[in-house]
Design a protein around this nucleic acid. Structure first.
Length: 567
RNA sequence: UGUCCGAUGGUGUAAUUGGCAACACGUCUGAUUUUGGUUCAGAAGAGUCCAGGUUCGAGCCCUGGUCGGACAACCA
């Protein structure tokens, strides 16, 4: 505790990110009557991933910070891509992260009638027209970023004709793609978004909420700002790729806003993570082509995947805090996410001994058949976590790599003639290495020193290493899934020529082993988090049962052994 | 050969709006430790994309470049 320092030096004002600065300025100016109201607007066409988690933490976090409100709004304007399965999972994931939108859950589809009314007004004002051109023609006449577009031959239709045609579009008289409604803005605008953008298209599709009521659906741009306006959103935060849409967002608002209030769009850089694919399309492909077991596969960067993997909501929110908010493109090292997980789990996860790669050790001077109960501390970081009993006996398993036959002097663990401490138990000394006819090590014969019992306090000599172990006859068996990163490339999205991101898949992203675990884990419930001593953080799988205990590896322990070994 | 946006240690984010570039992760060193974990103490590492300008003083302001990103779905 740096109490003294805190008293001597005035606490440094925590720095604000650019969105917070903007909001504080607005607040100071009395904009929006001092209200802050944000929203998170996912399209229900996939599961939420860690990138969405960042966006949620920003939008909702800002509202919380300034005592404002936040909404959840499903941006469901494209029925052919959307599904209720996603609506449900999105709600579950946001709740799990710890955010509560109370009764403010909306759908863009709630506003279809209002949107229709408003667009009629635009048509009457000569600001929108029905275009009969095909999608290809519209695309071809839009021009390029450096060449102006060519006005549609239907651009100057009369208001009456537009009204009639649009009415008939709505009534289902035309097939998909036959006509669209376009805003009449500027076909020569240097901003491609302003070249008479499509406002409505014909889609004879059943919407997951409005059913068959509509066969024309609004485009994102025409729905989004208006939805913000309807909901009283003050700050509409989105990612950078919508920056170029902002003039259009504002143009549409210009047409409908009455009075002083109007929402304002602000953009920030989306999250990129090393070794991680963040595109919904690609994640969907991983699921559909069965490269993973589902959206909640522990290797997926989805919120549900991380949850199943054993990540905690706190760690994800802390992570979002650490990475900050800015407008420049970024690639965050996954190590930072993993650090946030370890930081949280270190405080919360109870310690347990488990041997993943067993080597049998027989303690030759320990009485046969005797089982002794030793005391273990559940969590040295948390006094309230209590203690547990661990059986010890003549035959135990230790980790294979905790023994080395020809050990260098820097190797602190077991080797012929060397002595180590068994965690919570005794010193043991390796007396004999037993091998089979092929020369493989079968088991170790060791002796223990009864004087060195843990906690006895009468130990005069020191050992350099403490290793974990599990007693053979009382050990439980568990299936351990050692999940590793799904991709071997730091930037799997950037595939070499002739390759796709799938070529960057890690063939070793899942290894399953059967391990021996101390008997106390029989009480573990699905989703419980534990730390296997000296190994890593693990989470009891959601489908784990008493008959078949399954652990997913959340994240390995920070491991400086490897570095030592490389010296 | 357009418009918009961006550029600060390896990574990410700051810099009280013009005042000797800070914090976190990572790296390294040391101490404590019945986890080579945790914790603690310390160190190295950028002179802010480049070139000019304004100023007593520029990462912040101005001018001109360079590099990177976004935009030409009836996706969001």
């Amino acid at each position: 505790m740096n109490k003294n320092r805190a008293e001597d030096e005035p606490a440094k004002k925590p720095s604000l990110n650019f969105i917070e600065q903007k909001i504080e300025k607005e607040l100071a100016e009395g904009k929006h009557q001092g209200r802050v109201h944000t929203r998170f607007p996912p399209e229900p066409n996939g599961y939420l991933h860690i990138g969405h988690a960042k966006a949620i933490c920003i939008s909702y976090g800002i509202a919380e910070k300034y005592n404002g409100l936040y909404n959840l709004r499903f941006d469901d304007t494209n029925p052919v891509k959307e599904d209720v399965e996603y609506v449900d999972s999105i709600q579950e994931d946001i709740k799990w992260l710890g955010f509560d939108w109370e009764d403010r859950m909306y759908y863009a589809s709630d506003y279809f009638d209002q949107l229709y009314e408003w667009v009629l007004k635009l048509i009457k004002e000569g600001k929108a027209y029905v275009d009969d051109q095909s999608a290809e023609e519209i695309s071809a006449t839009r021009g390029t970023p450096t060449k102006p577009g060519i006005p549609s031959p239907h651009r100057e239709r009369s208001v009456e004709e537009n009204l009639d045609l649009f009415e008939r579009m709505k009534n289902g008289e035309f097939p998909d793609g036959a006509k669209v409604l376009r805003a009449k803005i500027d076909m020569a605008s240097p901003n491609m978004q302003m070249r008479d953008p499509v406002m409505y298209r014909i889609l004879h599709a059943t919407h997951h909420r409005t059913g068959d009521k509509w066969c024309i659906y609004p485009m994102y741009d025409w729905a989004h700002g208006q939805s913000d306006y309807i909901e009283g959103i003050t700050n509409s935060l989105c990612s950078l790729e919508f920056e170029i849409h902002r003039p259009l967002y504002n143009w549409y608002l210009d047409q409908i806003v009455e009075g002083k209030y109007r929402p304002e769009q602000t953009e920030f850089a989306r999250l990129n993570l090393t070794y991680t694919v963040m595109s919904k399309r690609k994640l969907l492909q991983l699921v559909e082509e069965k490269h993973v077991t589902g959206w909640d596969d522990p290797r997926m960067p989805t919120i549900s995947g991380f949850r199943r993997r054993g990540y905690t909501p706190e760690s994800i929110r802390n992570f979002a805090d650490k990475i900050g908010v800015a407008k420049r493109d970024n690639v965050i090292d996954v190590a930072l996410l993993e650090h946030a997980v370890r930081e949280d789990l270190n405080k919360k996860a109870n310690r347990v001994m488990a041997v993943l790669d067993p080597l049998k050790v027989i303690i030759t001077n320990y009485p046969e058949g005797k089982i002794e109960e030793l005391e273990g501390i559940n969590n040295p970081e948390d006094e309230n976590a209590g203690k547990r009993s661990i059986p010890f006996g003549r035959e135990i398993y230790i980790e294979c790599n905790d023994f080395m036959e020809d050990a260098p002097s820097k190797f602190f663990r077991l080797a012929p003639g060397r002595e180590v401490r068994l965690k919570y138990a005794y010193f043991i000394k390796c007396e004999e290495v037993v091998k089979d006819e092929d020369g493989n090590i079968v088991e170790l014969h060791c002796t223990y020193d009864p004087e060195t019992k843990s906690g006895s306090g009468n130990v005069t000599r020191k050992v350099k290493g403490t290793i974990h172990w599990v007693e053979c006859t009382t050990a439980l068996q568990a299936e351990i899934r050692l999940y590793d990163r799904l991709f071997i490339s730091e930037t799997p999205d950037v595939a070499e020529e002739g390759k796709t991101f799938l070529d960057n898949l890690n063939p070793d992203s899942l290894k399953t082993v059967t391990a021996f675990v101390e008997p106390s884990v029989k009480d573990a419930k699905p989703m419980d988090k534990v730390q296997f001593e000296r190994t890593g953080y693990f989470c009891v799988d959601k489908d784990s049962t008493a008959e078949k205990i399954v652990f997913n590896r959340t994240v390995p322990l920070r491991d400086s052994w490897a570095k030592q070994a490389n010296k």
